[in-house]
Design a protein around this nucleic acid. Structure first.
Length: 881
RNA sequence: GAUUCCGUAGCUCAGCUGGGAGAGCGCCACCUUGACAGGGUGGAGGUCGUUGGUUCGAGCCCAAUCGGAAUCACCA
């Protein structure tokens, strides 16, 4: 083994530790899937971030969880493929590039389609580089040899393949329907891209005059400007109030158009006046009614939300300006007779925030029902279904699938996968195909592109070479093992991946899907640009290091819950990292020249050694178990407690005894245990804090080139020592009691005291005598007596532990009244415990029905408590007497 | 209207498919012990929202109820 630097600076500095480490990993190709046939594959595909900008804390959280799983699996010997990539994010990306153009006083039409797309590609390259550098800072073990982009050739081929196949099966169709129109970005949206918000609006009540009569019919609306497109008034067929009017004509005010009063079951007699204006071109329900009654569809708006020529004198006005005008005019004409406040839900575009307009338009749709049915069916097979973690999200998913609506997939954008449909210039014939038609000069391709999510839905298999089903990666790494994402995109993405995967590969896209929540600010608000409360993960890393950020994210919440960001909590994880650092520093300081080959655990182990190895076993068990269940918080807590409380506070303190002593044999054993425990601990901590653990591990006696490919710790039964655990417990109780009494009488550790330990039997005397050195180190006695029988001085403080009583003769320091008071409290405590246990044991139901193990445990406790109670009582009587 | 989540120490949250209430931060007292003063030791602080039920036993299961949040669907 070559000579190496074994010392560490006294302060943990994440910048120094993390610098260059990622390059070392990449150079070693530790993150590249090997394809090794002797290893079992384990696959994760990254949820591709949008190429619109910086990664936020949500990405950091999401990817850290994936990295943690991937790193553990890699160490466990799997051939791990964690595939990186990015999403072209149609609307979002086009919007930012257009915004940039606007700054230059241009728009996309000035450039033209081709030039504009060149600009977007430039933007994409810039941000892809930026995103990769952020992944690097987070320490993500990604296989860059397989990085993908949703608009790569291969992925685009997959998109066309899926489109064509669905079209050929009749599952994709084109038609004129009411869709959600965003007048700002001038594109159609799918239903889930519309966010409904409660808005304080108005409810306008109007009289529509009935032709050839002096009566009117009252109707109400929240969007009075749409009345320009009314082509009927509908009432319920059974409504006694209106039955006689059915078939009569109404003169549409302002417009003067004659429209019919029709009867339709859809109308709710109870709501409003029971009569509804019907605008088939601007309302989905009215559209349906219009179809049933063969009504004319009158579109009154342009694509940008201004009124068109059908609006007559209102032509050119913005829809909201038109509303104001028309309200005024209707009032003047006496048609509009009442306006009331009305709170209702108004749809807004997820991307632009604009009020969405229900709008008649020709678009492409996916006929969802058959696909959804198959996805629902999939969940019925326990071995083939997608396992949601936490389980409850499966219900959310299923509910959506069971109430599925057709998916509008065309978008009036330029950035994205252009729809593979061509229209014959003369015959208007439609051609859908993987390639353009041969006599291309006679055809025109559809101008529109596909919804971004159409390509993301194929991500788990399009990235692996599909539609080539013989592609090696596809055969080996698909289906993937786990997908990690937030609950906010279950519908957008998770659900769509599942039905597309089922349809095209016949399989689930991933075995597990781990759903996490949202990151919020310290007050619990969503982080958003408008609030300006966002925290840049790179700022956190600059301040506290990636390891601290990661550990905070992993341990900050439980699966499915939201996570609040608190700087103080990141700081406290930094403290933990610093603790790990300094404990390792101590270990290294005592390991000069010690090599991995020198580790020898076969010698005589001291109590502390046996105990820490037992605790290590337990920790390995719990960390592995919980990480496998994606319970990173629990796993992290086991690591934290083991390292801080057991390893640092007890083991290291106890190890100082042999390390600072002159028994070379014992020193070597302790060094072995230290080296072994630190090695194993660093490995376990590595998926959580990759940088610091690699740094320390490299300096520890170790074997292998990188901790990233070191073997994951295994429980070693030969190290499990129940007896040592018990003895350690007694020892710790004694030490803590002494500390307590010292605190009570204000006697710091530096002052020596006399310590008398009266053990219950000879075995315990022997046991404690063996551990005498520890007692001396931790209690600092001038005199230490351990015996079964002894003259107990009257003037002494005392305490009881299991199997022994301790006395500290502290003449002059003791306030006897206070000591009696303290012991009485103690007695009360044990009496209470005894009562509780005895009551439990006297309960026949408990003894007969509770598991044996529990009953035995209670019996053992009863014995222990009775003994302690008796000892305290006796002592109290002595003092009083 | 349907569904879901949350309510536990001053604050932020854990609590492992029911078996004696935990952590971090904050607070109080003490400690310059040779890895760490961003440390150590000791301590205070909780009717586990409320009420019922199931059970030998409930923070955990069931029902109801109060309060907070989210998602979906909505009547013009």
């Amino acid at each position: 083994m070559s000579e190496k630097e074994t010392s560490l600076p006294s302060k943990y500095n994440p910048q120094d530790v993390e610098k260059g480490r990622y390059q070392f990993w990449l150079k070693g190709k530790f993150f590249e899937a090997t394809g090794n046939p002797n290893k079992e594959p384990f696959t994760i595909v990254i949820p591709p971030p949008n190429v619109t900008g910086r990664l936020h804390l949500g990405h950091a959280w999401d990817t850290t969880m994936q990295d943690t799983v991937a790193r553990m699996k890699r160490m466990q010997g799997y051939d791990v493929l964690w595939l990186p990539g990015m999403d072209h994010a149609g609307i979002a990306t086009q919007a930012v590039v257009e915004a940039k153009l606007k700054e230059e006083g241009k728009n996309r039409y000035d450039l033209g389609r081709e030039k504009f797309l060149e600009k977007v590609w430039e933007w994409k390259e810039e941000y892809a580089t930026f995103i990769r550098s952020q992944w690097e800072k987070l320490g993500l073990g990604l296989d860059y040899t397989r990085e993908r982009f949703t608009m790569d050739d291969g992925l685009s081929e997959a998109v066309r393949e899926v489109f064509v196949r669905l079209y050929e099966k009749g599952l994709i169709y084109r038609g004129e329907y009411i869709i959600n129109w965003d007048p700002q970005t001038k594109t159609a949206l799918s239903d889930i891209e519309v966010i409904y918000e409660e808005v304080q609006g108005k409810f306008y009540h109007m009289h529509y005059p009935i032709k050839d009569s002096d009566v009117t019919i009252d109707i109400a609306t929240t969007r009075p400007e749409t009345m320009l497109g009314d082509t009927a008034v509908a009432v319920h067929p059974d409504d006694e109030r209106y039955k006689h009017l059915i078939g009569k004509k109404v003169i549409l005010p302002i417009v003067g158009r004659e429209i019919e009063i029709i009867a339709d079951d859809y109308v709710d007699q109870e709501f409003g006046s029971g009569a509804v204006k019907i605008t088939p071109a601007h309302d989905p329900n009215d559209f349906e009614i219009g179809n049933r009654h063969n009504l004319e569809r009158v579109l009154v708006m342009n694509e940008d939300g201004t009124m068109n020529k059908n609006a007559g004198k209102y032509e050119g006005l913005d829809r909201f300006e038109c509303r104001k005008q028309i309200v005024k005019d209707l009032q003047d004409e006496g048609v509009l007779f009442h306006i009331e406040d009305h709170v209702h839900q108004v749809g807004h575009s997820e991307r632009s925030g604009a009020v969405v307009e229900p709008y008649l338009s020709t678009q492409w749709f996916v006929n969802m029902q058959p696909l959804a049915d198959r996805a629902i069916e999939l969940q019925k097979d326990e071995d083939k279904k997608v396992n949601f973690v936490p389980e409850r999200f499966e219900q959310t998913y299923m509910h959506w699938m069971e109430n599925i609506r057709d998916w509008c997939i065309s978008r009036q954008l330029w950035w994205g996968h252009r729809i593979p449909a061509w229209y014959h210039k003369e015959t208007q014939e439609v051609y859908v195909g993987r390639e353009a038609p041969e006599d291309i000069e006679n055809w025109e391709q559809d101008e529109d592109v596909l919804d971004t999510w159409f390509s993301s839905a194929l991500w788990p298999f399009s990235t692996m070479g599909w539609p080539d089903e013989e592609a090696e990666d596809f055969k080996r790494y698909f289906p993937t093992d786990v997908l990690v994402t937030g609950y906010d995109i279950i519908f957008f993405w998770v659900a769509r991946m599942i039905f597309q995967s089922k349809e095209f590969t016949g399989q689930r896209p991933f075995k597990d899907v781990l759903i996490h929540g949202l990151i919020r600010d310290a007050e619990g608000r969503k982080m958003s640009k408008s609030l300006g409360n966002g925290v840049d993960p790179m700022d956190v890393i600059d301040k506290y290091g990636a390891d601290s950020l990661r550990f905070f994210l992993l341990t900050g919440s439980t699966p499915g819950q939201d996570l609040r960001f608190h700087w103080e909590r990141v700081e406290s994880t930094w403290n933990f990292a610093n603790k790990v650092w300094n404990a390792s520093r101590f270990a290294l300081m005592n390991m000069d020249g010690f090599t991995y080959e020198d580790i020898d655990l076969s010698g005589d182990l001291l109590l502390a050694d046996k105990w820490i190895l037992t605790r290590l076993n337990e920790t390995i068990k719990m960390v592995t178990y919980n990480t496998n269940k994606y319970e990173f918080g629990e796993a992290g807590r086991y690591l934290y407690n083991f390292i801080w409380d057991e390893l640092c506070d007890w083991y290291i303190e106890m190890a100082k005894l042999p390390l600072y002593g002159d028994n070379e044999e014992k020193k070597k054993t302790t060094r072995s245990v230290l080296a072994y425990v630190f090695d194993q601990t660093m490995r376990m901590l590595h998926p959580f804090m990759p940088f610091i653990t690699e740094e320390i591990w490299q300096k520890l006696p170790h074997e292998g080139v990188s901790i990233t490919v070191a073997q994951w710790p295994e429980v070693r039964e030969e190290f499990h020592d129940e007896q040592a655990a018990k003895e350690m417990e007694r020892l710790v109780s004694i030490i803590k009691s002494v500390r307590n009494i010292r605190a009570e009488v204000d006697t710091p550790m530096s002052k020596e005291i006399t310590l008398l330990i009266q053990a219950k039997n000879d075995e315990i005397v022997e046991e404690l005598t063996n551990e005498r050195a520890y007692l001396e180190r931790f209690c600092n006695p001038s005199e230490l007596v351990i015996a079964t029988e002894m003259d107990v001085p009257e003037k002494a403080m005392s305490a009881v532990v299991t199997g022994a009583e301790i006395f500290l003769p502290l003449e002059g320091l003791i306030d006897f009244d206070k000591e009696i008071e303290r012991l009485e409290k103690e007695l009360e405590k044990w009496t209470k415990e005894v009562d509780r246990v005895q009551k439990k044991l006297a309960n026949k139901g408990f003894v007969t029905k509770a598991p044996k193990k529990i009953v035995e445990e209670e019996k053992r406790k009863e014995k222990d408590y009775l003994e302690k109670q008796a000892n305290v009582r006796e002592r109290l009587q002595e003092l009083k007497g």
